[in-house]
Every structure is written in structure tokens, then in C-alpha cells.
């Protein structure tokens, strides 16, 4: 295994061009090192942690820009994120363990492209974009099309994720991330549900509702039919019940050692309902009637 520490994005991209699929990018290493130990070593390991200015959280225009090397812990402890992007904050605080959060980066979590990755469904519902550098230039890719399958993303073998561009939701919008797992820390989500709700001006209806489903398909998913059902309406118990059931049909889970597919759908249903109740209450100050 060859090991590289490029000092610039350009150097990193040249290495990726040269080594192609043989190369593996490493940042925090919380996934990559496990693979090296338990699976196999890549031909070339490209450590991007020495590239300056890839970490940090800044507000620019109507967006928050989060550098790829920003640790999950930095996001979790950012007052800006907590205020502007509560759904992302909520997911980051439920991520693995404090030790892992101190090391793992958001770029790593994204590029891993695991359907259960904690930050992924929040980025989907925030309609964020991945800023990707290629040797022929930079490109902004919406997360909707970024995730292509387990471990597969639009960055491919030769692109480098440098930043995440997250449009700040309208003031008054609320979000939650609900995680179902076997144990309280250091566990992969059996199901993760991100819900974001924006009320209308009078706080009478849900002007916009977005639902992200994790660990129930080959990529993190949105639940478009469920979102459409809810848009523009006041949330009632009956409507939420219907929405939960519909969201369960939008998931395409598998059975594995952690849970049956059937149970995953049940959990999607329960967490979708719960996420809607919580965001409705947070956004409108009213209990679901």
C-alpha cells in the first residue's frame, strides 16, 4: 500500500487520477481503517487531512458551507448549525460515540454513502449540494443524485468532496432526526428518519414537509408521496397516521441480522409519525389534533 499526504486539492486530484479505483481517500479514518483491518488494503491511501482550509463552518449568502474535513463533533457543537439546521445537529449528536465524533468527518460520512449514514438523510431533506472537485473543475451536485448505491457516489474514484453547501431553511422551519438502534451508542441505525417541517405564515398549515429515510434502501431516500400528501395541510392525527403508513411503503428495506424488513417498515411508520408530531409542535406550538 502506498501512502500519500497531498498538501493541496490539486495534488490530491492528481493522485486520484493516477491511481484511479486503486486509491482510497482517508480523512478521520473511522471507516477506512476498519476496512483496512477487516477487509483489504487499498493500493494507495490518500490522506487529505493535510490540505488546508477543508474544515470549517461558514455562513455565506443563504447557505451554510461545511468543509469536508469538519468533524461531526464540530458540527454537533456549532451554535450556528444548531440554530439554522436543527435536523443535521440532531443527527450528528446521535452519531456513533463521542470518541468517533471527535475524529469522523462529515465528508467521510457522506462519501462512505452508507444507507444508514447519520448525516445523509438530513442533507437530503435540507436539499443540500455536494461541492465536488475534479481535475477539470468544480461541480455542485445535489445529494438527491449524489448517492448512487452503498459506497457509490457521484464523486466516483476521481472526484474529491470539498464542501457541503446547505441552503438555510426558512425561519420557523423545524427538523428532527430519529434513530432506531439496538444500543445507545456506537451503533448503526436500524432505521433513521429525518423530518423537516416549515409552517406557513399563520402557523396553520405545513407549507413544506420533507422526509428522509435511512437504512431502508440501497441509498438514503426521500419519501416524496408522503411529503406530497402533507404539503399545505394542517397536521391531524388521522393525516399523520396515513402519512406514516404511506412512508412505510416508500421504504424498500431488506431483512438482515439486525432486523426483518417488515419490522423496518413498522419502524419507518412509527418514526415518521413521531417526527411529524414533534416538528409540527415545534413549528406551530400546537399539539397534533
Amino acid at each position: 500500500m502506498e501512502y500519500f499526504e497531498p498538501k493541496s486539492i490539486g495534488d490530491a486530484l492528481s493522485l486520484l487520477s493516477k491511481h484511479g479505483a486503486e486509491a482510497k481517500v482517508i480523512a478521520g479514518g473511522t471507516d477506512v481503517m476498519v476496512d483496512i483491518k477487516f477487509k483489504e488494503e487499498p493500493g494507495a491511501l490518500v490522506n487529505i487531512k493535510k490540505i488546508p482550509s477543508l474544515a470549517g463552518i461558514t455562513e455565506r449568502g443563504g447557505s451554510l458551507r461545511i468543509g469536508a474535513l469538519t468533524t461531526i463533533r464540530d458540527i454537533e457543537t456549532s451554535a450556528l448549525v444548531r440554530e439554522k439546521l436543527p435536523v443535521l445537529w440532531d443527527a450528528c449528536r446521535q452519531f456513533a460515540s463521542l470518541q468517533v465524533r471527535n475524529t469522523a468527518t462529515i465528508g467521510g460520512n457522506i462519501c462512505r454513502a452508507s444507507p444508514s449514514g447519520e448525516s445523509l438523510t438530513p442533507l437530503l431533506v435540507l436539499e443540500a449540494n455536494a461541492i465536488l472537485a475534479f481535475s477539470d473543475g468544480e461541480r455542485s451536485e445535489p445529494f438527491k443524485t449524489f448517492f448512487q448505491g452503498p459506497g457509490k457516489s457521484a464523486a466516483g474514484a476521481k472526484g474529491l468532496l470539498t464542501e457541503v453547501d446547505i441552503p438555510i431553511p426558512p425561519a420557523g422551519s423545524k427538523g428532527v432526526y430519529l434513530k432506531h438502534a439496538v444500543r445507545g451508542a456506537m451503533d448503526i441505525a436500524m432505521v433513521g428518519v429525518a423530518v423537516m417541517l416549515t409552517p406557513d405564515a399563520g402557523k396553520n398549515n405545513a407549507q413544506d414537509v420533507r422526509i428522509g429515510l435511512g437504512a431502508v434502501g440501497p441509498t438514503p431516500l426521500r419519501a416524496p408521496k408522503t411529503e406530497a400528501l402533507l404539503k399545505g395541510k394542517a397536521l391531524t392525527a388521522a393525516l399523520i397516521k396515513e402519512a406514516g403508513a404511506l412512508a412505510a411503503t416508500e421504504a424498500s428495506p431488506i431483512t438482515d441480522q439486525r432486523s426483518s424488513a417488515e419490522n423496518r417498515r413498522w419502524i419507518v411508520e412509527a418514526l415518521t409519525r413521531r417526527g411529524l408530531e414533534q416538528t409540527w409542535k415545534a413549528a406551530t406550538g400546537k399539539e397534533v389534533a
Binding site: 444500543r183 445507545g184 451508542a185
Partner: peptide
């Protein structure tokens, strides 16, 4: 987990023990 005699976990990531949060 053992299915038809085959153990389906290989490490402590898959074989879960409680941790302090539990």
C-alpha cells in the same frame, strides 16, 4: 446468530455488547 451451523458475526461491530449508554 447461528444459521444452519454458520455463525453470522465476525467482530465486535456486529456482535454487540452493551455499552455505558445502555
Amino acid at each position: 446468530p447461528v444459521l444452519d451451523g454458520k455463525v453470522e458475526v465476525a467482530n465486535f461491530g456486529e456482535y454487540k455488547l452493551p455499552n455505558i449508554q445502555d
